[in-house]
Amino acid sequence: MPAIVSAKDVTKVYEGGFEALKGVSLDIQEGEILALLGPNGAGKTTLISVICGMVSPSGGKIEVGGHDILTDFRAARRLIGLVPQEINLEPFEKVMNTVRFSRGLFGKPKDEALLEKILRSLSLWDKKDNRIMELSGGMKRRVLIAKALSHEPRVLFLDEPTAGVDVELRKDMWEIVEGLRQDGVTIILTTHYIEEAEAIADRVGVITGGEILLVRRKDELIQQMGKKELRIDLSASLEAVPDALGGYELRLEDEGQTLVYQYDTSGERTGITGLLSDLAKAGITLKDVSTRQSSLEEIFVGLVGEGS
């Protein structure tokens, strides 16, 4: 299946020489949720801004739905909805008018029934005649989403949708995103909350210093890049790791009560069988055994650390 968004060798050098994107290539499949993960200044917003038309690329090629974003910008942009990072709304305007305006800008004829459906799905219907300035921060974010959805886009870009919002609203936002995916909308969101990518994304792209380090399925990423820990609770505490176990990378925690063994799940052998047998030979008795998977956050910190 061809990608709905395809970027090839995209570069962006701002005036003054700052290289925000250094040859980014990325394919986004229809119907997926892709999380672009990266620290501040990684190039996430620049990449979105270039695809959506707010920033001119310095080089490379981008297609949306098979349409070049520069030579066939009308067809490309009709497919795109954008929810910006900042709450950019006219404070004196009424909710319904501002959503109506967005639909008109995209060349779509009036469709009040559709706008009602969108506003209802975002719990905004009873606020439709309120001025933007009368709404809470969370409601304003919903208005931005309603504006982006007003022209029925096939691809929705959410730039840091939950930056600075409380936990409850963040969960609400995740539900909204999941609902949109079920309606068949492709979603690309940028975030620096690992938890967010972990909770809702199908694939994760890690971007840092203007370069994409990798794009993987979230579960594959955790499996491939992830380390697992085997935690062994001991019946009697140890002062040091016995010499007989020197061949394993072990560390003692909880004042000698727990032995921690880190292993790679992608390796052919994990070494667990040998370790357990050597522990028995050394006369160490075990009270309990558990394993723990590395979180996406630990993987991310590792990757970004390597990248820089």
Binding site: G53, M54, R74, A76, E90, L105
Partner: peptide
């Protein structure tokens, strides 16, 4: 100038116009 000032210019730049 007002859309530039409050940031809503993003919508004009990203619309098919």
């Amino acid at each position: 100038y007002f859309p530039k000032f409050i940031g809503t210019i993003y919508e004009l730049l990203s619309a098919p116009i």
